[in-house]
Design a protein around this nucleic acid. Structure first.
Lengths: 248, 248
DNA sequence: CGAAGGCTTGACGGTATTCAAGCATAGTGG
DNA sequence: CCACTATGCTTGAATACCGTCAAGCCTTCG
């Protein structure tokens, strides 16, 4: 499991000459910390509410989490999804409360690591710190892309972009089979991600389906049948987007 | 100038026992680096284009910057504004290109510090590193709040929220006089920030003005006359928002 | 004084929301 | 095995919100 957090890393030792412990020892230490703070949650569990005290860093081991915020009148916006290998600190600027609600979309395994321990760990394992830095940039990049489409895109662009983003992220962690993948969420939740009503998500996906850009079976099993046109609908090139939002 | 980046800091030495150089020496070193990389730009200057190579960290000394992304058909979304005291690294996940376009909205002074130098500096001055961490959380928090409103809010909520956010940020750096402040941007640009057309920005601000919530003079000089009702329109409490988005 | 840029207002049309009803599927208990 | 329910997807109709187009006005600057 811990391997997930170190294996995919670029060789950092060349350009960042930290005084690292030996590779093996670092790996073991990371593994130990991840294991000892490991917790599992079933789908639908709310791990943290908005503004609840929070001083932990979350390392995703398996499953999906949704980070969301809600208005007083009950509307909800999903800010981001967390997938295996992702690292997240949900703290607001005040540093001791969570800026978002954290909810499991599926059976989920997470290491919830107190910030003090996390700080020590990243000090000791530069590769992990580097990974966290890349993650921060990755989150910011994809949030920016989504903001652009929330502000200026129509429903087709929003849905197409979201599917592209999730496809790329899932592909990186080996969770797609060719061009098909499954999203553990309802159309309602995809709407909360894209800023659309569930009804309009349905209509928009049908339109994409009618254009033979993708196929669905009504259970959020997606097959992209024309990635080029999907990318065009999303308003971004596949490789361009991959470079921008995937941590390297 | 450098004082701006250290003065407002919380006393970190208590809960984060880094081996810090003496206060004075650290301050001098930060001042030296900031000064030697200082650059000034006039309003309208584009400092960086989207996807342009970028390996620098930006420390705002004076003025306003807008970070934006554009669609192929020419629509633009302003992702965030940078104000004096802010620290930003515009890198995408790929780490060597900028995820956003950077443009000056006013006469601006910035220290543009190569990442290697920045890394050394923050290693040597823990207070600065802590500030950068707070800035990261602050940016993420306010982006989340804005995403919520881009996705689920109407024009009044978007405008009201944006004015609240900018009011709070400006107040923190001493740029408001009571409840009045100036925004160095056109209604077109405020629309690019809120995901609205300039025409609708105009109408919405007029509506807020008709309700006696604020007054404008058509030159982006804003006076908030009823902060409580502005907060209600924005869908957030003033203090709640301050806690969430202002670095402490 | 003329030109340029930005604000304002009206009219119109398009996109997305809401409300409502019907359908399909999976799970439950008799 | 079969109602029965709950949940989510689908589709239609009516409505609301916002964008676009267009014209007029004001201010600033050369």
């Amino acid at each position: 499991m811990a391997g997930d957090f170190l294996a995919a890393l670029p060789d950092v030792s060349n350009d960042r000459p930290y005084l690292a412990a030996s590779e093996d020892e670092a790996t073991k230490r990371v593994e130990r910390v991840l294991r000892s703070h490991r917790r599992s949650f079933s789908a639908g569990t709310i791990l943290k509410m908005e503004r609840e005290p929070c001083s932990e860093t979350y390392c995703m081991l398996d499953g999906w989490l949704a980070l969301s915020k809600s208005t007083e009148d009950g509307h909800r916006q999903i800010i981001d999804f967390m997938l295996p290998g992702d690292i997240m600190n949900p703290a607001s600027a005040h540093r001791n409360t969570s800026a978002v609600q954290i909810e499991g979309l599926s059976q989920t395994t997470v290491s919830v690591i107190p910030n003090v321990i996390w700080a020590n760990l990243t000090e000791a394992v530069p590769a992990l710190k580097w990974r966290a830095t890349c993650m921060t940039a990755s989150v910011r990049s994809r949030m920016s892309e989504r903001m652009l489409r929330l502000g200026k895109g129509n429903s087709e662009m929003r849905i197409a972009y979201s599917l592209m983003e999730l496809f790329l992220r899932l592909r990186m962690i080996g969770k797609v089979d060719g061009f098909s993948f499954q999203l553990p969420m309802t159309q309602q939740q995809l709407g909360e991600f894209t800023g659309l009503s569930s009804v309009h998500v349905c209509r928009t996906m049908r339109r994409l389906s009618d254009k033979n850009i993708l196929t669905t079976n009504g259970k959020m099993d997606i097959v992209i049948s024309d990635i080029e046109r999907l990318a065009r609908s999303a308003g971004v090139g596949l490789d361009t987007l991959a470079n921008e939002i995937l941590p390297n």
